[in-house]
Design a protein around this nucleic acid. Structure first.
Length: 154
DNA sequence: GCCAACGTTGGC
DNA sequence: GCCAACGTTGGC
């Protein structure tokens, strides 16, 4: 089992929205970056654990845990002209963008803000904290995942 | 609101 | 294929 981090802006979709969704499950749609697409399409597997991270909010923070319940399949929003993430150049027969389904597992007992992640020695190498890192789907080492959960229960 | 970092586009 | 211009991300 691998571990991942998914970024989202809570003003558009928050962990609470995931929690309130039917069966606490949603398609993780709208990712429009090829590197992140490749991860969603090929690497995220059923049962993988996921940290949900809120960006562009105060403070940015890891807020919850989820799990992958369906592996990569075409993101339907790319074909919906009314959707913000519509991509008219994506061929119907060879979709460009993929998503997975994730189910909320638990809200963390305490949010772990970005500043706290930065100050944790165990997270020194975490992808999220590297300079210029913007990828919205990131692998997380098992030790990093465990360290973040430990911070969340302090 | 600023701006650094990065990704994409498109002329050549 | 190069690279300047432009757009986006996302912390601060």
């Amino acid at each position: 089992m691998r571990h991942w981090l998914l970024k989202t802006e809570p003003s558009s979709f928050s962990f609470d929205d995931l929690w309130k969704a039917p069966r606490r499950t949603t398609g993780w749609s709208g990712v429009r970056n090829y590197q992140a697409r490749n991860l969603l399409r090929d690497e995220l597997k059923k049962g993988d654990r996921v940290l949900i991270y809120h960006s562009s909010t105060e403070p940015p923070a890891v807020v919850g845990e989820a799990e992958v319940v369906r592996e990569g399949y075409p993101d339907p929003t790319q074909f919906d002209p009314r959707d913000d993430h519509f991509d008219g150049d994506s061929p119907q027969d060879a979709p460009r963008w993929f998503q997975v389904d994730v189910r909320g597992v638990r809200k963390l007992p305490r949010e772990v803000p970005l500043a706290e992640l930065r100050s944790a020695p165990a997270l020194k190498k975490m992808a999220l904290l590297q300079r210029g890192q913007r990828l919205s789907v990131q692998p997380v080492a098992e030790s990093e995942y465990a360290a973040i959960l430990a911070l969340a229960s302090k």
